[in-house]
């Protein structure tokens, strides 16, 4: 070996391995770039309203019988959630950081990473109790039975959802944490939304209290507040509405509920919880009527639509007034 070779090898041995982007980031980027490439080459024409990577990944057919291809730890196949509703393109990060279409996925195990495409959404029954929802363009890694890691996008968690949503244990709620690059978000009996963009974390609270153990600063938010972390700055607390546009996507992910034999009162409670609004009856008689009115069938529509349809047939009137839905008898 020449002196130059020897010197070179010594030099290289002093260096650290080059940093690499993580698997999830690589998978998401690969599909985004692939979609753009396919649009450019005309190989697969995209629809205007579809985001790139989502469209691209539609050509990747999910083969669920080959379950082992998915990233699941060999040692612990811990089921942490089950899917109650999903729409739009859903992906799972597989080996070699490739996104695989997974629209028919039913259960989630610790270690798996789920990515939603444009105009997508998912509702999960969290195994330890609670309803977990993902908005479109969201990437989340299921770490273990009490935490997820939010890479990007928007998630919502309701620790005590309506009993009308089947398959969720509301009696024995375990802990649930959302980890992010800005810190760990945990809650005390609540409904809250966590949104992570490239340079900002926003935690919005509908009910209860949420604490964030931030990378640089801690913070807490109560009902009607939003906690905002940006860079290394101190968190900011803002007053927000608990309903409206920012929350609308949650209604779209509401799982189907079975109302057969349940009262209109229970149905309205579910509506209120999903829409973030209080329910008020015109008087006590009206409330008693709602308790006695028995519904039939299942509700597959999102809450706002279901409210219109069901109330029309129940001879009840209703109106939105800011954060409240007022219910009265039709005249």
């Amino acid at each position: 070996m020449s002196n130059v070779d020897e010197s070179l090898e010594q030099l290289l041995s002093k260096a650290s391995p080059r940093p690499v982007p993580d698997d999830v980031a690589t998978a998401v980027a690969r599909e985004a770039v692939r979609a753009e490439w396919q649009a450019v080459t005309g190989k697969h024409r995209t629809k205007k309203n579809m985001v790139g990577f989502a469209v691209a990944a539609t050509i990747l057919v999910a083969v669920f019988s080959l379950f082992n291809q998915f990233r699941v730890p060999d040692t612990a196949m811990v089921q942490v959630a089950s899917i109650q509703k999903s729409f739009g393109p859903i992906f799972i990060v597989g080996e070699q950081s490739v996104l695989t279409r997974a629209d028919n996925l039913e259960v989630i195990h610790a270690g798996q990473t789920i990515v939603t495409g444009e105009e997508s959404g998912i509702a999960f029954a969290w195994a330890e109790g609670g309803s977990l929802r993902f908005d479109a363009n969201t990437t989340v890694e299921f770490r273990d039975d009490d935490s997820v890691y939010l890479h990007s996008g928007r998630v919502y968690f309701d620790s005590t959802p309506s009993e009308l949503i089947s398959g969720i244990d509301v009696a024995d709620i375990g802990s649930f944490k959302i980890e992010t690059k800005y810190g760990v978000v945990s809650h005390v009996g609540t409904q809250f939304m966590t949104q992570l963009e490239s340079d900002e974390l926003r935690v919005s609270v509908r009910e209860g209290r949420v604490a964030v153990v931030g990378t640089y600063y801690p913070g807490t938010a109560l009902r009607g507040q939003q906690l905002k972390f940006s860079g290394r700055q101190r968190p900011v607390v803002l007053d927000i509405l608990e309903y409206g546009d920012a929350w609308d996507w949650i209604g779209r992910t509401s799982p189907t509920i079975d109302v057969d034999g349940r009262s209109a009162h229970e149905f309205l409670d579910w509506i209120g919880r999903e829409l973030g609004r209080n329910i008020e009856y015109s008087d006590e008689t009206m409330e008693q009527l709602a308790r006695k009115a028995i519904l039939k069938g299942r509700v597959v529509d999102e809450p706002a639509i279901a409210l219109r349809q069901r109330m029309a047939t129940a001879a009840f009137e209703w109106r939105y007034e800011e954060g409240t839905i007022y219910v009265s008898i039709s005249e």
């Binding site: 982007p21 993580d22 980031a25 998401v28 980027a29 770039v33 990007s152 690059k181 490239s198 340079d199």
Partner: peptide, 12 residues
């Protein structure tokens, strides 16, 4: 790392 990932993706 998040910014770098985003910029690398946008670049490609």
């Amino acid at each position: 790392p998040d910014a770098a990932r985003e910029v690398a993706q946008i670049t490609l």
